[in-house]
Design a protein around this nucleic acid. Structure first.
Length: 280
DNA sequence: TGGTCCAAAGTACTGTAAAT
DNA sequence: ATTTACAGTACTTTGGACCA
């Protein structure tokens, strides 16, 4: 909140993306939970919808715009890659160098993923056939589903397996991890169909998830919530002027109860109202 | 229906200016 | 001298338009 005020006063929002050290750490922490944002080999990396949702989640956590978060993340990653590159020399000289950058350790998860783009080459164009695509090539899919957060973060294991099933079903054409040098002459349309399938599945699971979340949130309501919800339904049936009167009287009643609640031990409730709230 | 071409968008990488 | 942020460049992917 202080930061928001400060930034509004100084008007630093446009030109430079200004993150505090804590925000940087938080950003890295949240991005780390979304392989789709940094792992080129993750199949969800190419899905803009998934990524947008992930960035939105990051932005919500940091109370920043997704654009700022992306920009800051790019800078952090640039810096990290440079440091890595610079550190690559003779082992002794680099290892003895003290680690000054606080984020370096937090970013170590980037070491586990590949950042190099796959280059086009006509060498070995037929060397990779569809048979070489093993089930293991799609391990990242499960990881992506479990760790990606956002829309499909909470997809059930069943959903994840059905998702993977589609991928496996299309394994002859969906070469997620293969270089472009493979024979993809038949790929575009089939990839479209595959994307459609995946999108459909994600939508279905999203609905499923909404239903589950709805049920969970309903279960968390106690009897007071349920009582007032049922009262609200009755009140809504009344004429507008009566609705207003009901609101007023309810407020008066609540105010009276709050006053009594604040005063020391008043046991003048009639037995009918003395039961615990959960018994209402 | 499938293939090709092209434009747009996204991102890794690199150079450089500014800050420390 | 080193670190950091940003702009520019090159590359990849995607989707639309067009054609056979």
């Amino acid at each position: 909140m202080c930061w928001e005020r400060l930034s509004s006063v100084l008007d630093m929002s446009d030109s430079k993306v200004w993150f505090t050290a804590m925000e940087d750490e938080k950003l890295v922490e949240i991005v780390a939970k979304h392989p789709s944002l940094y792992d080129l080999e993750n199949p969800l990396y190419k899905d803009q919808v998934i990524k947008d949702n992930a960035w939105k989640e990051v932005a919500d956590h940091l109370r920043r715009s997704a654009k700022d978060c992306k920009k800051r993340w790019r800078n952090i990653k640039d810096t990290y890659n440079r440091r890595i590159k610079k550190g690559k020399g003779t082992g002794s000289s680099t290892s003895s160098k003290p680690e000054k950058w606080a984020l370096a350790e937090m970013l170590s998860f980037l070491d586990k993923v590949k950042h190099k783009r796959l280059s086009i080459s006509n060498i070995g164009i037929n060397s990779v056939n569809s048979d070489s695509v093993e089930e293991g090539d799609f391990e990242g899919i499960d990881v992506g589903i479990e760790e990606s957060g956002g829309v499909i973060q909470n997809i059930s294991d069943q959903s994840a397996s059905s998702f993977a099933a589609i991928i496996n079903d299309e394994s002859s054409t969906a070469n997620w991890n293969l270089p472009r040098s493979s024979d993809f002459s038949h790929l575009p349309t089939k990839r479209l169909k595959l994307n459609e399938k995946i999108t459909k599945l994600i939508e279905e699971r999203s609905c499923e998830r909404s239903e589950i979340l709805k049920l969970i949130s309903q279960r968390r309501e106690d009897s007071v919530d349920l009582f007032f919800r049922s009262v609200a339904m009755s009140v809504k049936q009344l004429r507008p002027e009566l609705i207003n009167e009901t609101k007023m009287r309810t407020l008066q009643l609540v105010f009276e109860m709050e006053s009594r609640n604040a005063s020391p031990a008043s046991h003048n409730l009639s037995p009918a109202y003395s039961s615990s709230p959960d018994q209402v």
